[in-house]
Simulated assay, not measured.
Amino acid sequence: MTSFAPSDRVLVSPRHLAGGGADRLGSALGPLITLFGWHHTHDPHTGHTALTSPCESLFVDFDPCDPRGVWWRIIHHEPYWQARFTRQTPIEAIAAVTQVLPQSLGDRRHAERIPLTTSSLAQTARLTDWAETRDGQSTTFTSADGHCTLTHQPDDHLRWHIRHSLFDGFDTDWSAAFTRAAPARLVAQFFAHLTADTPVERTYGDLPYLAQRSSDALITPVHGAAVNPHVHHALARAVHPQGRPR
């Protein structure tokens, strides 16, 4: 049995088990509007939000009513490429991509506040204990718990594909994909923020049900700890590296 109430704020690691984080959607869209002046439309009835870059070459589309569960699409023209993310993709990794989109267009305002990773996928994997395997031209990176994979297939239309599932459980499946012409640095940005050691904050009730009960998820309180909650989480990780404290 858990000691957390559904409304309790908690810190969760690893990030790929934390679910979407619906209460933090603004971190993915807000900076493009307020800092970079992207045009946007919003339907208050459906939540559908569409953003267009000032040069009208790049689009971000958020649609929580998509019947296939693809809530996020980033679309670029000339060259055409697309990135898409399903509902439970952690918002921190999505926001890491959307916030650097202006830099991909040459707009480096606020670059010091929104850094773009310089690490390759392989370098990030080594630093975060993700295993790397090769099969011909295909390279796969797998999280230490085996629940999340990133596959790079250079000859496929979907050149980079990230998949997650906790024992094929309901509401733990999510996926992300980048098509062939997508900038590799955006994929590296997504991966760096997906694999980061820093825990993410969620409402306990918003976590996927199986993640709440998985020994692979470390879940600690935001309020009520005797020390800073991030310090508490780090100490708990040291004592229980593959599970949450009981």
Rank of each mutant, 00 (worst) to 15 (best):
M1F: 03
A5D: 08
P6A: 07
S7F: 04
S7C: 08
R9A: 06
V10H: 04
L11F: 10
R15A: 06
A18V: 00
A22C: 14
G26P: 06
G26H: 07
L29R: 06
I33S: 10
L35I: 04
H39V: 12
H40T: 10
H45N: 12
T49N: 07
T52H: 05
S53K: 10
P54M: 13
E56N: 15
S57Y: 02
V70Y: 15
W72Y: 06
E78A: 12
P79V: 03
W81R: 07
A83W: 08
F85A: 12
T86F: 15
Q88K: 09
T89N: 04
T89Q: 02
A95T: 13
V97C: 11
Q103N: 14
R108C: 04
R109E: 10
I114A: 08
T118E: 07
L121F: 12
R126P: 11
L127E: 13
W130T: 00
A131L: 14
D135K: 10
T140K: 09
C148S: 14
C148Y: 02
T149R: 15
P154K: 10
S165R: 05
A177L: 09
F178I: 11
A181F: 01
L186Y: 04
F190C: 10
A192C: 14
L194W: 01
A196T: 07
D197H: 13
A211C: 06
A211N: 04
D216Y: 14
I219W: 14
V227R: 09
H230C: 00
L235C: 05
A236L: 05
R237I: 04
A238Y: 12
R246E: 03
